[in-house]
Design a protein around this nucleic acid. Structure first.
Lengths: 181, 181
DNA sequence: TACACCATGTAAGGTGTTACATGATTTG
DNA sequence: CAAATCATGTAACACCTTACATGGTGTA
């Protein structure tokens, strides 16, 4: 489905970026719903350039370091818009290794089972705290009052991540309660 | 990380199964957290046999149809148990194409955006209804009173799936409310 | 001048999907 | 006897990760 293609197109659409910039984006805000390594990004940028969806300009940093600053083309923008308005079928349920282990709970002894759930719970609580701090930061620096505000996308995604973590934590706690009965 | 390996090992550990049986399992209960196509399962079964973690017995169905009924070996059971008690780091956040689109909401016109959220909401509500029906069925046919009950794994996983869908629905509705302001 | 970071790429291999390919059994 | 389902496999390709490989810039 070439999702990476559209993720990159969407980012470059906002403002020109280098491959390195895109890699950084994938490791900050976007990480809550999409990510990719630089080894996947550089070949994709080449492909998008060949397809005429983006173009680049070589910029010299300092004495001789060459950067490729990518800009979206009209064709690329149209392709992005078409993808954005397309009605996709629901994705398959995301795979979850911990739930796979939980499914085989009758093969674990009780102590191991409890330990596994408690460890996982701790990690999700930490992630939730991290996300809540990120939300505090976001509310300080960006205006999110309207759908058209530059921070609205960041805000709803972060909010969704927080809700997802809370729900997962509720599930883990609920399981632990049932195991102690 | 060879997760498929352990998914298969965990299933065969309960009772002997054929590749076809495993494929069916992946398309029923397990689908809420793991799945695989037969084209991935058959080669994996061969690999696990070569590694001595499972073994098979050829069974004749009817006149000449050959089935391979796989059983877990002692080595396989130990491998499964070791994996089950291992403490894994938290997995990366699952990728989510819809959230990727939502992140680029400022590039969509208001009507398209609302339509996208409403369509997705409808689909998630349908999935939730399906899961709730599955839960009703499960409660009728299986005993889930104790951790050691055969249906406990199925129960907590289904419950987790229901909670996940409810949380996603809450998020979608929350976004829609904010977009209408 | 060492270290962290900026910047771009390729190679090998694992994971997963779609399509190709074949044949037997059961059920209506 | 036709259609659905049972049953097993391979091939090609897409997607993704880890590791390899190289070199420039800024700063303490």
């Amino acid at each position: 489905m070439r999702t990476l293609k559209y993720a990159i197109l969407g980012l470059i659409n906002r403002n020109p970026l280098t491959g390195y910039d895109i890699t950084k984006e994938f490791n900050s805000g976007l990480v809550e719903f999409w990510y990719a390594k630089h080894s996947q990004i550089y070949p994709e940028l080449k492909k998008l350039t060949d397809e005429g969806l983006i173009s680049y300009e070589t910029v010299i940093q300092g004495e001789k370091l060459e950067k490729k600053l990518y800009t979206i083309t009209e064709k690329g923008r149209k392709s992005l818009q078409k993808w954005l308005s397309k009605d996709d079928p629901l994705e398959p349920t995301p795979k979850d290794i911990f739930k796979l282990k939980a499914y085989f709970c009758d093969e674990m002894d009780h102590d191991t089972l409890i330990k596994q759930f408690k460890n996982t719970l701790t990690k999700h609580i930490e992630r939730l705290e991290y996300l809540e701090n990120s939300m505090d930061e976001l509310l300080k620096i960006k205006d999110i009052s309207a759908v058209s505000s530059p921070g609205f996308g960041d805000y709803i995604i972060l909010n969704g991540a927080i809700m997802r973590e809370k729900s997962y934590i509720d599930w883990l706690e609920d399981c632990l309660r049932k195991m102690h009965l």
